[in-house]
Computed example of a mutant assay.
Amino acid sequence: MSGKYMVVDPLERLDIIKGLASEVRVKILKLLGTEGPKNVNQIAEHLGLPQSTVSSNLQILEDTGLIFTRSQKARKGSQKICHSAFTEILVAFNDEPAERRNDKIEVAMPLGLYTKCDVSAPCGLCSPEGVIGLLDVPQTFLDPGRMRAGLLWFNRGFVEYQFPNNPMLAEVTPRSLDVSMELSSEVPGTSDNWPSDICLHVNGVEVGTWTSPGDFGDKRGKFTPEWWKLAGSQYGMLKTWSVNGQGTFVDGEKVSNVTLRDLDLAAHKSIRMRVGVSEDAEHPGGINIFGRGFGDHDQDILLRINI
């Protein structure tokens, strides 16, 4: 599973070191990281601990940013659901800049922070707490509440994200560029046989298309909230577009001859990433994009530059 990583300078973030200095808190992090979001009662039951003990340790983890919580409707009022913020934490004892470690630069973009969109119905946005705006109304994609989105879908069109051009700022030469996100087709209800051609553009260049086989609803997504109807899209497939000197690949399979040179990253102050379904697609089966709080992979849209 792809995840979110954190590099810690122990002198600057002693709070995180202290946050990890507890067997209970480490067990909580491992539980959330392996089994997904849970409420306080579920964590206490799984670890065999009093709810008060779990609550106090969760507060420490939340204060240090190692977990985050979201409110979710319950039978009586609402409940807090705890999410792990990181899958790996590296404690660094050297002075190498964090963004250069492991020869890669990563930026995780929340699903709702697109800078441009043009979508057609059926379409919609959801946060882990509920529906955002009106369903099947494209103008809802301009709602400020979109910043909280964990799931979005539309029939045709695109959403575009603007990432900082960190390689240019760091004055390094990239070897390859990866874009990773969880995707599926979009059909009213669900169908595992509903192909859709999902296309990725970077800096205005069409880099390659992946054909999603369907819109999956045979089981609840690992991170999909309980309030989301089971008849709706539940999860997708985690796909990675990779652009290097030999071409563009999706999960290792070559899909086009577009190379990193064609993207001309050095000529742009930002990296624009557009994903969607074209009007002339052979299989115009719509798109679901799953972010944090939905689907099987609790991650944002991830841009990775390998240097």
Rank of each mutant, 00 (worst) to 15 (best):
Q162S: 15
F163N: 05
F163P: 03
P164Q: 11
N165C: 08
N166D: 15
N166E: 15
N166H: 15
L169H: 14
A170M: 15
A170D: 12
E171N: 14
V172D: 02
P174C: 06
P174E: 01
P174Y: 07
R175H: 13
S176W: 09
S176V: 08
L177R: 07
D178I: 10
V179A: 01
M181C: 13
M181P: 02
M181N: 04
E182G: 04
L183R: 06
S184F: 10
S185Q: 01
S185T: 05
E186R: 14
P188C: 04
P188E: 11
G189N: 07
G189D: 07
G189Y: 02
T190I: 10
S191A: 12
S191Y: 05
S191W: 03
S191I: 03
D192S: 14
W194E: 00
S196Q: 06
S196H: 08
D197Y: 09
D197W: 10
D197T: 06
C199M: 13
C199Y: 09
H201F: 14
H201N: 12
H201D: 15
V202D: 03
V202Q: 03
V202F: 02
G204F: 02
E206A: 12
V207C: 11
G208C: 10
T209K: 05
T209L: 05
W210R: 07
P213C: 00
P213W: 00
P213G: 00
P213F: 00
G214S: 06
G214W: 01
G214I: 00
D215A: 05
D215V: 05
D218I: 11
K219T: 13
K219I: 11
K219V: 13
R220K: 13
R220H: 11
G221A: 08
K222Q: 10
K222S: 11
K222R: 12
F223E: 14
P225Y: 07
E226A: 14
E226F: 12
W227S: 09
K229R: 15
L230C: 09
G232R: 14
G236R: 03
T240I: 01
W241E: 07
W241Y: 01
W241V: 02
W241H: 04
S242Y: 01
S242W: 03
S242I: 04
V243K: 01
V243Y: 06
G245S: 13
G245C: 11
Q246E: 15
Q246G: 15
G247R: 04
T248E: 04
F249H: 10
F249N: 05
G252T: 04
E253V: 15
E253R: 13
E253P: 00
K254F: 10
K254E: 11
V258L: 07
T259S: 10
L260H: 02
D264N: 14
H268T: 02
K269C: 14
I271E: 08
R272H: 11
M273K: 07
M273N: 01
V275D: 02
V275W: 04
E279L: 13
A281C: 03
A281M: 05
H283E: 06
H283V: 00
H283L: 02
H283Y: 10
P284C: 03
I287D: 03
I287Q: 00
I287H: 04
N288I: 06
N288A: 08
I289W: 03
F290C: 08
R292Y: 05
G293F: 09
G293R: 06
G293L: 09
G295P: 06
D296N: 15
D296V: 06
D296F: 09
D298V: 05
D298F: 10
